[in-house]
């Protein structure tokens, strides 16, 4: 089952121009099996999500992208998002308490900038980021990261044995589905999604070129 695990819509993320219903139609058109709305610091109302899913006969899921001191984290299964800019360790405790999942979003986005190559960042030093000790998986395939940044994230994922997810981080319709998470088993509900993310029966991939 192919799911774009990281999508922003204008319904709850002011920086996005993507209409939720247009996102669903586009997802169906390009062959996705489901999409997950992960707005900035805000969760979709479960009933609104279900209504939309039923209207379009299309699987919809929900997470949230939280800004922390150590970058953005995708959170699944947490109903109350801490205000402000939480420390990842505090967020981890909250996620554990709720039985959720925490994923490092686009971990190297913007880091491998032009001219930064002479920083000589090694795989070993990249793996030492504190936040990687706290998350369940890495977004190794991000539609908003460069190929180099995604390659480094994949190498870190292999070295640290963290599982890899993919998400487009779409804010516009043409960005939807650039990267996806391919689940081995069908995902029928939010609970299924969290359970499969915990089990690790998935892989990340590029999808829309």
């Amino acid at each position: 089952m192919i799911i774009d695990l990281h999508v922003h819509t204008k319904a709850l993320s002011p920086c996005s121009s993507l209409d939720p219903e247009e996102a669903i139609q586009e997802a169906k058109r390009i062959g996705l099996d489901g999409i997950c709305f992960t707005e900035h610091g805000k969760l979709w109302d479960a009933q609104d999500l279900e209504r939309l899913s039923n209207k379009w006969h299309f699987p919809l899921f929900c997470g949230v992208e939280v800004e922390t001191r150590d970058g953005h984290l995708l959170i699944f299964g947490l109903d109350n998002i801490p205000p402000g800019i939480p420390a990842p360790a505090d967020l981890r405790k909250a996620v554990d308490g709720a039985g959720g999942v925490m994923i490092a979003a686009h971990p190297f986005r913007g880091f491998l900038l032009f001219g930064f190559a002479d920083l000589s960042m090694t795989l070993e030093s990249a793996c030492k980021r504190r936040v990687f000790q706290l998350v369940d998986a890495l977004e190794t395939h991000s539609g908003k990261s460069t190929k180099k940044e995604n390659d480094l994230a994949q190498a870190v994922g292999q070295k640290t044995s963290l599982k890899s997810v993919g998400g487009s981080d779409a804010h516009t319709i043409s960005e939807l589905g650039r990267c996806v998470t391919v689940f081995a088993h069908p995902i029928k509900s939010q609970a299924d999604l969290i359970a499969e993310l915990k089990r690790g029966n998935f892989r990340a991939d590029y999808f829309r070129r």
Binding site: E67, R69, D70, G71, F111
Partner: peptide, 11 residues
């Protein structure tokens, strides 16, 4: 402890 990169201005 903050890294100079994406998101630093807001932080």
């Amino acid at each position: 402890g903050l890294r100079i990169g994406s998101g630093i201005i807001k932080l």
